[in-house]
C-alpha cells in the first residue's frame, strides 16, 4: 500500500512535529510523553478536558485542541491506545484547579489506560471524572462483551463539553453534558475499502471491489456484515434504521445530524449521504437543527462513512453554537 510517509516507525512523531509548526497560536506539542495541549493551558479555574486514543483518526483528537473544545489530546501509536504516563502528564498540564474531565472512547485498551491514569492523577490530588462514550449501534451491547464502541458522538461530546467548560461550569456540570451526549447519541458506520496501518503495510482486511462492510469500526476492524455494494440511498437506510430504532427518539425531537467521512471518501459523496439521512430523519418526525459534514473521525485512508445522530435540548444547541477555535473545527470567532 502506497503511503506518503518517510518511516513507518516515525509516523506519529513526524505528524506531531508538523502540527507544532502549523498551529503554534493554538497548541503546544509535548514530546516524551506525547501530548498536544492548548497554548494557554492551564487556565485557572476552568475545568480541563482531555481525550486521547490511537492515531489515525485525524483530526480527532489533536485537531480539536483549542478554545471551546479540548485542553489536551494524547495520541497513541496508530490505532493503539496511548499510555497512562501521557494521560497523567496531560492531566497535570491542563489542571487549573477546577478538575479534569477524561473523555474516553469505549475500547478495552483506552478504558484500561485511562483508568490507570485517573488513579495516578487522583493520587496526585487532581479531581478527575471520566465518561466513556459508547455510541456504535453496530455492536451489540451486553454485559458479557466489551460493549459498544465509541465513535462519532465523541466529536460532538468534545465540542459541547468544551463550550460548557469555557462558560465556567463545574466539573460535575461539564461531565453531565458528556453523559447526556453518551445517552442521547448513536452512530453506525460502513466501509467501501479497508485501510493499512503504516507499520503493517498491508490492508487490515480484504474487501473485494464489489463488496462493502456494514457496521465497521474506526480501526479497520471488520464489521458485522459483508454484502454486495448498493446505491447510496439504500446504504444510508441500512445505517439510519438501527440508529433511529436504538434510542426512543420521539416525534418532534431535535437532533444534530453528523455525516462523517472515514478518510477516503470525498465530500461530494458525503453530501449525497446527508441528503438521504436528512430525508429519513425528517420522515421519522425528527427535526435536524444542526449538522456536521466531513471527515472528523477517520480511519486512515478507509473509504466509507458513519452517521451519528444526537438528540439535543436547548442548552446543548447553545453549547454547539458557542465559539470554537481549533485546527479541525472553527466557528463563531
Amino acid at each position: 500500500m502506497k503511503k506518503l510517509i518517510n518511516d513507518p516507525e516515525r509516523v506519529v512523531q513526524e505528524e506531531l512535529e508538523g502540527i507544532a509548526l502549523a498551529h503554534p497560536d493554538l497548541v503546544k506539542v509535548h514530546f516524551n510523553p506525547n501530548y498536544i495541549v492548548r497554548a494557554d493551558a492551564p487556565i485557572k479555574g476552568k475545568v480541563g478536558i482531555i481525550s486521547g486514543g490511537g492515531s489515525g483518526h485525524e483530526p480527532m483528537h489533536g485537531g480539536f485542541v483549542g478554545l471551546g473544545m479540548l485542553d489536551a489530546a494524547c495520541p497513541g501509536a496508530v490505532f493503539t491506545s496511548p499510555t497512562p504516563d501521557q494521560m497523567l502528564e496531560a492531566t497535570k498540564a491542563v489542571s487549573g484547579g477546577a478538575g479534569v474531565l477524561h473523555i474516553v472512547k469505549n475500547y478495552t485498551g483506552d478504558v484500561m489506560n485511562f483508568e490507570m491514569a485517573a488513579d495516578l492523577a487522583k493520587a496526585e490530588g487532581i479531581e478527575v471524572e471520566s465518561v466513556v462514550i459508547d455510541d456504535d449501534v453496530a455492536v451489540k451491547d451486553s454485559l458479557y462483551t466489551a460493549g459498544r464502541r465509541g465513535v462519532g458522538s465523541t466529536v460532538l461530546a468534545e465540542k459541547l463539553c468544551g463550550a460548557a467548560a469555557e462558560e465556567g461550569r463545574s466539573l460535575k456540570e461539564v461531565a453531565d453534558v458528556c453523559r447526556k451526549v453518551k445517552d442521547w447519541g448513536r452512530s453506525m458506520g460502513m466501509a467501501l475499502t479497508s485501510c493499512a496501518v503504516p507499520h503493517v503495510g498491508k490492508p487490515t482486511f480484504d474487501l473485494p471491489e464489489d463488496e462493502m462492510e456494514i457496521g465497521i469500526g474506526i480501526h479497520g476492524e471488520p464489521g458485522r456484515k459483508r454484502m454486495k455494494i448498493k446505491p447510496a440511498d439504500e446504504i444510508v437506510e441500512m445505517l439510519m434504521e438501527p440508529i433511529i430504532s436504538d434510542i426512543p427518539y420521539k416525534e418532534g425531537d431535535e437532533v444534530i445530524l453528523f455525516v462523517n467521512g472515514m478518510g477516503g471518501t470525498p465530500l461530494i459523496e458525503l453530501y449525497i449521504v446527508y441528503r438521504k439521512a436528512y430525508e429519513i430523519a425528517t420522515k421519522h418526525g425528527l427535526k435536524v437543527v444542526r449538522n456536521l459534514i466531513g471527515p472528523y473521525i477517520t480511519s486512515l485512508e478507509m473509504a466509507g462513512t458513519s452517521i451519528t445522530m444526537l438528540k439535543v435540548d436547548e442548552d446543548m444547541i447553545k453549547l454547539w453554537d458557542a465559539p470554537v477555535k481549533t485546527a479541525g473545527l472553527r466557528w463563531g470567532i
Binding site: 497513541g76 499510555t83 497512562p84 485498551g109 484500561m112
Partner: peptide
C-alpha cells in the same frame, strides 16, 4: 511496558 506498549496489552 506501561509507558511503551499502549493498547490493551500494555496495562495487562
Amino acid at each position: 511496558l506501561l509507558s511503551t506498549v499502549g493498547g490493551a496489552g500494555g496495562p495487562l
